[in-house]
Computed example of a mutant assay.
Amino acid sequence: MYDWLNEIPYTDWSRAYFSRRAKCDMLLSNICEVFNRQIVGARDKLIITCLEFIREYMTKRIVNVKKLQAKCMGPLTPHATEVFDEIKKQAAEMSVLMVVVNVKHKTCACRKWDLTGMPCKHAVAAIWDMSRNSIDAGIPEEWVDEVYWLSTWKKVYDNVIEPINGPEMWTPSECPTTLIPPKHHTQVGRPKKKRKKAFGENELEQEFDKGGKMTRKGTSIKCGKCGNMGHNVRSCKGQGGEQSTASQESHTATQGAPVYNLDE
Rank of each mutant, 00 (worst) to 15 (best):
42 A>Y: 15
13 W>R: 03
49 T>I: 10
76 L>G: 03
48 I>K: 07
29 S>C: 09
230 G>H: 01
209 D>V: 04
221 I>D: 01
10 Y>N: 08
146 E>G: 04
132 R>M: 03
14 S>G: 03
118 M>N: 03
228 N>H: 05
169 M>P: 00
53 F>I: 04
24 C>A: 10
22 A>S: 12
203 E>H: 10
168 E>N: 10
110 C>G: 01
262 L>G: 04
224 G>W: 04
184 H>R: 12
80 A>T: 05
223 C>A: 01
219 T>V: 14
174 E>L: 11
143 W>H: 09
250 S>E: 09
210 K>Q: 14
87 I>Y: 09
226 C>M: 03
259 V>R: 06
19 S>K: 05
216 R>Q: 15
63 V>S: 13
148 Y>D: 07
177 T>G: 02
258 P>G: 06
121 K>L: 08
46 L>Q: 08
91 A>Q: 00
7 E>S: 13
44 D>S: 15
93 E>T: 10
103 V>H: 02
150 L>D: 01
98 M>Y: 12
164 I>F: 13
19 S>T: 10
61 R>E: 11
209 D>N: 15
255 Q>C: 11
64 N>G: 15
71 K>D: 09
89 K>C: 05
66 K>A: 10
223 C>S: 00
175 C>T: 12
51 L>F: 14
57 Y>C: 12
241 G>R: 06
184 H>E: 08
24 C>Q: 06
185 H>G: 03
161 I>R: 09
3 D>E: 14
160 V>M: 11
261 N>G: 09
123 A>Y: 04
249 E>Y: 04
73 M>I: 11
248 Q>P: 00
112 K>W: 04
80 A>Q: 05
189 G>S: 06
67 K>H: 12
133 N>S: 05
244 S>L: 01
219 T>G: 06
39 I>C: 13
87 I>Q: 05
149 W>D: 07
127 I>Q: 00
58 M>S: 14
171 T>A: 03
105 H>T: 09
179 L>D: 04
210 K>G: 13
202 N>V: 08
253 A>N: 14
180 I>Y: 04
67 K>R: 14
11 T>E: 13
186 T>Y: 09
139 I>N: 04
246 A>H: 07
5 L>N: 06
225 K>S: 01
116 T>L: 04
154 K>G: 08
46 L>D: 08
142 E>W: 02
1 M>Y: 14
235 S>Q: 10
183 K>G: 08
163 P>V: 07
191 P>Q: 07
119 P>M: 04
16 A>F: 10
179 L>A: 07
79 H>R: 11
161 I>H: 08
121 K>Q: 11
